[in-house]
């Protein structure tokens, strides 16, 4: 009987010790918080892309008319096949367009070629040569920035977002010299302008 009592007491002691150890353990718990940041990025390939875009409708002065509207080719590097008609002195045709740099390299204008237009009188007419000369004498053909400033070599066009607004104008300058008026139609050709952009340093 005494043995059973002792055993019971021992169990009680062990239980009490366990409770106290657990209680002390709970009392010493620490608060923590883990804050995390996580994401990813993509680094794109390098590209070279300078192109025409935003070709406008023509601005016509006087009795000027468009026979064939210009188009930008699939590479966006050529504006071509336009045909316009200038009838009286003072007539003009203008187009505006943008040159944009959507590549990852900075670009600069390294070459500008604006040829002198060629005038050709109507074939097999006596006045062909004279007509051609007289028309070309009063013809101006200009390419400028849209605000009228001149293009110049080393003009910068920054990567990805660089835009240069340009204006192309063909004018039959107003004059009052009747003798200079052509007797027959004159074809104006050699109007191709070339702009070369290269990678900037």
């Amino acid at each position: 009987m005494d043995g059973n009592k002792n055993r019971g007491l021992k169990i009680g002691v062990i239980a009490a010790l366990v409770i106290s150890v657990v209680a002390i353990g709970i009392g010493f718990a620490t608060f923590t918080e883990t804050l995390k940041i996580e994401g990813s990025a993509t680094v794109q390939t390098s590209t070279w892309k300078v192109k025409f875009t935003n070709l406008s409708s023509p601005t016509l002065n006087g009795t000027a008319a468009v026979v064939t509207a210009p188009t930008i080719n699939t590479n966006d590097t050529t504006i071509s096949t336009y045909d316009v008609k200038l009838i009286k002195p003072g007539d003009s045709v203008s187009y505006t367009f943008d040159v944009v740099n959507t590549g990852t390299y900075n670009a600069k204008l390294t070459s500008i070629t604006i040829p002198t237009p060629t005038c050709t009188g109507k074939a097999e007419t006596e006045s062909a040569t004279t007509d051609a000369a007289n028309v070309c004498k009063h013809l101006t053909y200009t390419l400028t920035y849209a605000d009228g400033t001149s293009l110049a070599e080393n003009d910068a066009l920054e990567a990805t977002s660089g835009v240069a607004n340009m204006k192309l104008t063909l004018t039959y300058v107003s004059h009052d010299v009747a003798a200079d008026l052509p007797k027959e139609d004159v074809t104006i050709s050699n109007l191709g302008i070339s702009l070369v952009y290269s990678q900037a340093d």
Binding site: F31, E33, T34, I37, E38, T42
Partner: peptide, 14 residues
């Protein structure tokens, strides 16, 4: 193009 992953930081406050 290159994908950069494991842009990851963790800070434990206690």
């Amino acid at each position: 193009s290159v994908t950069v992953s494991d842009i990851s930081a963790s800070v434990i406050y206690s």
